[in-house]
Computed example of a mutant assay.
Amino acid sequence: MDLDWNGPQILARLRAAGMDGIELAAEHLLQVSSGLAPHEEGDLERSGEVSKDANAGAVAVSYDRPYAVRQHEEMTWRHDDGRQAKYLEEPMHTERDSMLALAARPLRDELDG
């Protein structure tokens, strides 16, 4: 009996599926956090993006405006209804289960396929 070991190919496919999964989770986080971000003219909301570093196995959600951090951290500022400080931090907690399910989906599909 001959056995072909495809370990490196399998690991590469699982790493790629893992990156796809965390990117899906990050896109979900971006969508939810954009809906919570303070909104005056929409610049902050539109500046949100997902970036990834496949070599590091990491993704990030960020907002690219000079005032983004201050808007996020300043708990005493008033915002329109449905908008708030901690617009990125809060959905990291409240959307945890959804993001974990999204992250797991491509891995599950790869293992089932």
Rank of each mutant, 00 (worst) to 15 (best):
P106D: 09
E45L: 12
E110I: 00
T94P: 12
G48K: 01
A58M: 10
R15L: 03
G42K: 04
S51L: 07
L111W: 06
A37C: 11
D43V: 04
S98M: 14
Q71D: 12
G113N: 08
A58Q: 12
G21W: 00
H28N: 09
E40M: 11
L14W: 09
W77T: 05
D20Q: 10
A101F: 06
L107D: 01
S62R: 15
Q84D: 06
I10H: 12
A12N: 06
A16L: 09
A12Y: 02
V32A: 02
L29V: 03
T76C: 07
R70G: 08
L102I: 04
V61Y: 06
H28I: 00
H79F: 11
I10C: 07
A12K: 08
G113T: 02
G7S: 10
A56V: 02
N6I: 11
T76R: 15
V59G: 02
D53C: 01
D43W: 00
S47R: 00
R78S: 13
D20H: 07
A25L: 00
I22P: 01
A37I: 07
L14V: 05
G42T: 07
A25R: 00
L36S: 08
I22V: 05
R96C: 11
L24C: 03
L102T: 00
D80H: 13
L107N: 01
E110M: 08
R46T: 04
W77K: 13
Y67G: 10
G18F: 04
D43F: 04
P66Q: 15
S34M: 11
S51P: 00
D109C: 03
H72M: 07
L14H: 06
E49R: 13
H72S: 07
L36V: 05
A17P: 00
L14M: 10
R83S: 04
P106A: 09
D2M: 12
L3P: 08
D4W: 12
N6F: 13
A17G: 02
R46F: 03
L88M: 08
G57A: 01
R78I: 00
L102C: 10
K86A: 10
